[in-house]
């Protein structure tokens, strides 16, 4: 006999279901008066440092139809490449930037949209710079376990080329599923759940 490891198992995930808004964005549903505002709605204020951008897109199913009941969360560094988190020991992040946003997809069009700033670069485990990126987490009816992916920026071609994570992807043809195209101040990032253009999801 040896000692027991005494590890617990992570609770199993269950779908967020079609009514995730009740718990996470009740004001979006018109159920106001319980919480003053939906958490994660505003990431920036007047004093936030960095380049203002809009990140928009859709989550598209295997038939090409956008999901109208998905919930998207994003997590990113500030303009200087620091996270607003107690586990960030490299410095103090911009106090006027939360780094975390949460938005439902529109009930009619399926479009989501975040007002944020372009993140700075953060290090990989070996100290090399990663390309600027935004972490995404997607939940919805029919998704049993929340999906993690990342959005990179089309106008950061050089940084993307030397990014340690993009570089290790075997199927180079799929890298473009992670790259948002820029038009003026708006980046568009469509997430494909299936098919030839299936977005790369990460097991992190």
């Amino acid at each position: 006999m040896v000692q027991a490891l005494n590890r617990l198992k992570e609770s199993a995930s269950q779908t967020a279901g079609p009514y995730v808004h009740i718990g996470c964005t009740p004001n979006f549903l018109g159920m106001d008066g319980i919480y003053p505002d939906d958490l994660g709605r505003a990431m920036v204020n007047d004093k936030t440092k960095g380049e203002r951008i809009t990140v928009t897109g859709r989550v598209i199913d295997g038939t090409g139809t956008p999901l109208k009941d998905a919930l998207i969360e994003i997590w990113q560094a500030d303009a200087a490449g620091l996270y607003n988190s107690p586990s960030e020991l490299r410095g103090s992040a911009d106090p006027n930037f939360t780094g975390w946003g949460r938005q439902p997809t529109d009930l009619e069009t399926g479009v989501f949209s975040f007002e944020t700033i372009k993140p700075g670069r953060v290090p990989f485990t070996d100290g090399r710079d990663q390309a600027p990126h935004i972490s995404f987490w997607i939940v919805a009816r029919g998704i049993n376990l929340g999906l993690h992916t990342r959005m990179y920026f089309a106008d950061e071609a050089m940084a993307n080329r030397e990014d340690p994570i993009l570089a290790r992807l075997e199927h180079k043809v799929r890298v473009r599923t992670l790259i948002a195209e820029r038009q003026a101040d708006t980046y568009t990032f469509d997430i494909h759940l299936q098919g030839a253009r299936e977005t790369i999801f990460f097991d992190i």
Binding site: W75, S85, S87, T125, H148, R150, R168, F201, F202
Partner: peptide, 14 residues
Amino acid sequence: PISFPNTISEITGP
């Protein structure tokens, strides 16, 4: 899904 080691982007959170 593709695996990679946790970086500062995964070990931090709101």
